[in-house]
Simulated scan of single mutants.
Amino acid sequence: MEDSVSSGSENVVSSECRPPNPLDETIRQCFAGINIGSTPIMGTIVRHPSLNKSLGFSVEPELSGKNGKPEYIPVVRSGAWTDIGNRKNMEDTFFCCDDFADEYDFKNTGNGPSAFYGVFDGHGGKHAADFVCSNLPRLIMEDDDFPKHIDKVIASAFLQADTAFAEICTTDSDLASGTTALAVLVVGRSLIVANVGDCRAVLSRRGKAIEMSHDHKPSFIREKMRIEATGGYVDDGYLNGQLNVARALGDWHMEGMKDSDGVGPLSAEPEVMKMKLTEEDEFLIIGCDGIWDVFRSQNAVDFARRKLQEHNDPASCSRDLVDEALKRQSDDNLVVVVVCFNSKPPPALAIPRARVHRSISAEGLRELQGFLDSLAAESAVPPML
C-alpha cells in the first residue's frame, strides 16, 4: 500500500494555452528514435496488422443541413485540472488541443472544430501514460486514412502505441508500467470517443448525462467472457488476480497478460463511440477513475452545469470537480478535462408544470350525486330531543 501524502494541485490549463509536453527531457531522450522492427515510431504510420477488417464509420465534411440551412457548428473551449490526491506519486496525465489542424499542420477541409483531448491513468509508474499521451495524437493525425476512416485509424493508433511501448521496455526495464487511455476527437459536428480502461467521458445534453464510454472492469460480463476466452481469469474483480482493469496499454512485464503479438486477456484495443453533436449538447466531462469513484455520471453533470452557469469557465469547472472529489474523499490521482461546445453557459432549465387530467365515469357521477343527496337529506332531518 502506498503511503499517503498531502494533496497538491497542478496549475490550471485552459484553451488559451496548450499544455506542455508531459515528458521531461530525460524520458523524451529515452523515447526518441525507438523502432518497432523496421517501422520507426517517430516516422511513417503503418496500419497495425490486427486491423484487417471492414471499415466502420467515417467523418465527412458537412456544409449544409436540411432545407439548405447551415448546419449547427459547435464552438469548443476546454480546460483541465489535476491533483496528486492521497497518493505518493502522480501517475496520470492529459492532453488538450482545441485545434489540431493548427498544431499538427493538418489540412481540415470541413467546417467546424478539429480538437483532440485525452486522459491517461497510469499504474505501476507514469512512463506508459506519458508515452501514450505524447505519441497517440501524432499516430492518429499522421495516418493517411484520417479522418475519413476514423474508427480504424484510432484503433490502429492505440495498438501501435502499445507495441511501440513494448519495444521501449525491452531496452529499459525500468520503464515497465501500464496505462488506461481515453481519447476524444471533435471533428466538425462529430464527437468520437475511444476508450481503453476505466476513465470515462460523459456528455451533458440539456442537463442529461449521456455516457460516451464503458468502464472496462474485469468483473463485467462482456469483459469477463473475453478474458476467459483468451486464457485469463478474474479473481475477486482483478484480471489474473493482478489488475483491476480489463483493458490497458503497456503492462508487458506482467506474465500471462499479452503474448508477443499483443493478444491475451489484457486488451489494448479501444471501444469507439461516435455521436453527432446538436444545439442541445452543452459540455463533455473526461475524467480518470478517481473522479468516477465518488461521482455518478448524472451527479457530475449536475455539479459541473451549476458551476458553468456561475462562471462559464471550463478550466475553473475542472478544478471545481477535482476539489469536490477531494472533499468526497477520493483516494486516487485526479485528472479532469471539461470541453464546452458553446460560448455561452448552459441555460437554466424550465421545469414544466405537471398537468393533471381528471376524469370520472357516469357511474361514478351517479354515486357521487347519491352521496351528496344523502348528506342533504340528513341535514334536513330535525334533531331529536
Rank of each mutant, 00 (worst) to 15 (best):
100 F>R: 02
212 M>Y: 05
34 I>C: 02
262 G>V: 09
372 L>P: 01
58 S>D: 04
184 V>E: 10
304 A>G: 12
372 L>F: 12
305 R>S: 06
332 D>W: 01
258 K>G: 03
178 G>H: 09
293 D>E: 15
320 D>L: 01
305 R>K: 05
219 S>C: 01
380 A>G: 02
34 I>M: 00
301 V>Y: 01
382 P>N: 12
320 D>V: 01
298 Q>K: 07
252 W>P: 02
222 R>E: 14
363 E>N: 10
148 K>E: 02
306 R>Y: 00
21 N>T: 13
44 T>S: 06
4 S>N: 08
327 K>H: 07
172 D>A: 11
355 R>Y: 02
26 T>F: 05
305 R>N: 08
325 A>V: 07
302 D>G: 07
6 S>R: 14
244 N>S: 09
47 R>M: 12
223 E>K: 06
375 L>S: 08
368 L>N: 02
95 F>V: 13
155 A>M: 07
137 P>D: 03
144 D>K: 09
321 L>H: 02
275 M>D: 14
343 S>F: 07
37 G>R: 03
71 E>S: 02
190 S>N: 13
304 A>M: 14
44 T>C: 00
259 D>R: 14
78 S>N: 01
292 W>R: 05
238 Y>W: 01
335 V>I: 05
184 V>I: 13
76 V>C: 14
6 S>M: 10
162 D>N: 14
202 V>P: 01
374 S>Q: 10
319 R>D: 03
197 G>M: 04
244 N>H: 07
103 E>N: 01
124 G>K: 05
297 S>T: 13
216 H>G: 00
4 S>H: 10
81 W>S: 08
302 D>I: 06
30 C>T: 15
121 D>W: 07
21 N>H: 06
198 D>M: 03
247 R>N: 11
158 F>T: 05
206 R>H: 08
238 Y>S: 00
75 V>F: 12
16 E>S: 12
159 L>Y: 04
34 I>Y: 00
242 Q>G: 02
137 P>Q: 11
183 A>M: 06
365 L>W: 13
342 N>V: 04
385 L>N: 13
307 K>S: 08
293 D>R: 15
96 C>Y: 09
141 M>H: 00
383 P>V: 12
119 V>K: 11
107 K>Q: 15
65 G>E: 11
373 D>I: 04
96 C>H: 07
45 I>Q: 03
304 A>E: 05
330 S>Q: 10
18 R>K: 10
97 C>K: 04
293 D>C: 09
